[in-house]
Simulated scan of single mutants.
Amino acid sequence: MAGAPAMAVSGGLSRADAYARADALTALGRKMFFDPSLSASHALACASCHAPSAGFSPADAAPIRFGGPHLDQPGGRAVPSLTYIEVTPAFTEHEFDGEEEGDPSVDNGPTGGLDWDGRADRGRDQARFPLLAPNEMANASPAAVVASVRAAPYAGEVRALSGGSDDAALFRTVVAALEAFEQDPATFYPYTSKFDAYLAGKATLSNAEARGLKLFEDEDKGNCASCHRSQVDATGTPPQFTDYGMIALGLPRNPAIPANKDPNFYDLGLCGPYRTDFAGEADYCGLFKTPSLRNVARRKTFFHNGVFTSLRDAVAFYVYRDVQPERFYPRRADGSVAIYDDLPERYRQNLNQDPPFGGKPGDRPALTEAEIDDVVAFLKTLDDGYQPPHAGVSSSR
């Protein structure tokens, strides 16, 4: 960084050298992110599943991706977005609010971490998963990743940043570079949505968007902000539209996921099968992390199992899950609705019942159809890349 003072920082580097190293890691990580040669198939890059055009989530509506050496091994969950994860806190089993946020005596339960079950705390740890997972990039070992790196055009950059050429050091540099790139502000958290412009006084929400924001925050209506926080925090950081908590929604089972063909298989989130340290913890079964809603309208699938491919349908699920369950769940042979069919009955006490959930079949939904449309209109203001209208044109249009 030009003009940076030559002060010593951790690791023995001057501040200027530390900035230079961070910039070099970011540039290297960008090259790796788009490089399919780092996979066993030589056909799958990070960007294959995290498309920039879709908010770094999949570019199509398939619920899972296929990987492996021959791209024939199915994934188990929908691929999450990589935008706005840079301030995600490390996972904790018991999270307490600060005094400025709420009641510091209330235990909010499991919170934080990366992936749908919070099992990685840092970007470099998360980057290891797809590189080594048999159904993703499918490298047999870190050494296999390094072998591909040695043959890549950026091999010299990796060696220079590693300070050596042994496999362990080179692999550490690979995952550190991917982490650095995924923390690049201009790429992954630019805060350029219409809502950010609105917060800065540079845009006006349309009538539908303004109504949607009000419903989003109304505790008796959408109540979305209870988990997808919409206020600037105490440090002045713009809202991330997540509280990083874990929640059980009772989503419909997605038959398009190959693992679900086994009627005895259930993806239980925090308590397995991919995370094992809470296996058998009944209170955590069915809980998945609340994602940020930034860039949500760019996504093609929603929730951990990709069961919805329309943002409006995803919002409607919250409204009608309990009062009109036949909209989402299959019917049994006797005609009854198999509600919450992707969560074993013994774990259904974990289901969230806060508004707009709750009630019983036939009750009035918390939102009308028109109000659902307004919430969706507001959510579309969270996509980055907003361009204010030309002078003389109202920004509410």
Rank of each mutant, 00 (worst) to 15 (best):
F278I: 04
L268H: 00
F278L: 13
F278Q: 14
F265Q: 06
S230P: 02
L270M: 03
P252S: 13
T276I: 11
P252T: 03
P273G: 07
S230D: 11
T276A: 15
G250P: 01
A234T: 06
N254K: 11
P239L: 08
A259W: 00
V232L: 05
V232Y: 01
D267V: 03
R229E: 04
A259V: 07
Q231I: 07
A225D: 06
L251Y: 00
C224T: 08
F278C: 09
P255Q: 09
N223P: 02
P258F: 10
A248S: 15
L215Q: 08
P252E: 09
G269W: 00
I257N: 06
G269F: 01
G245W: 02
L213C: 08
M246G: 09
P238N: 11
S226P: 00
D277C: 10
F265E: 13
L270S: 00
F278A: 13
P258Q: 14
Y274H: 10
K214V: 07
K261N: 15
N223R: 03
R253N: 09
A248C: 09
E217T: 12
K221T: 06
S226G: 05
D262P: 01
M246A: 14
A234M: 08
D277A: 12
Q240N: 06
Y274N: 12
C271P: 03
N264T: 14
M246F: 15
D262M: 13
C271H: 00
K221D: 08
T242S: 11
P252G: 12
G250A: 12
Q231K: 13
K261L: 14
D218R: 09
T237V: 12
E219D: 06
P263S: 10
P258L: 11
G236L: 08
D220P: 02
G245E: 06
R275T: 11
P263W: 10
P263Y: 04
C224H: 04
C224M: 09
N223W: 03
T235G: 05
Y244E: 11
L270Q: 02
K221N: 10
E219H: 12
F241Y: 10
S230W: 03
P255M: 06
Y266A: 15
A225H: 03
P252Y: 01
D218I: 10
L268K: 03
Q240L: 12
K261I: 03
D262T: 02
R275I: 10
T276Y: 06
D262C: 13
F241C: 09
D277M: 10
R229N: 08
A234D: 08
D218F: 07
T276L: 11
D220A: 12
Y266N: 12
D267R: 00
P263K: 09
R229W: 00
G222P: 02
C227S: 04
F278V: 10
M246C: 08
L270R: 00
F241W: 04
P258C: 12
D220T: 15
P238E: 11
T237G: 05
A256S: 15
L268A: 13
D218V: 11
D243K: 01
F216M: 11
T276K: 15
Q240T: 07
A234I: 03
G269A: 02
T235H: 07
K261R: 15
K221H: 11
N223L: 10
L268F: 04
R253K: 15
K261F: 07
K261A: 15
L270E: 01
K261V: 10
P239A: 14
D277L: 07
D218P: 06
K221G: 15
Q231M: 05
A256M: 13
D233I: 04
F241K: 03
I247P: 01
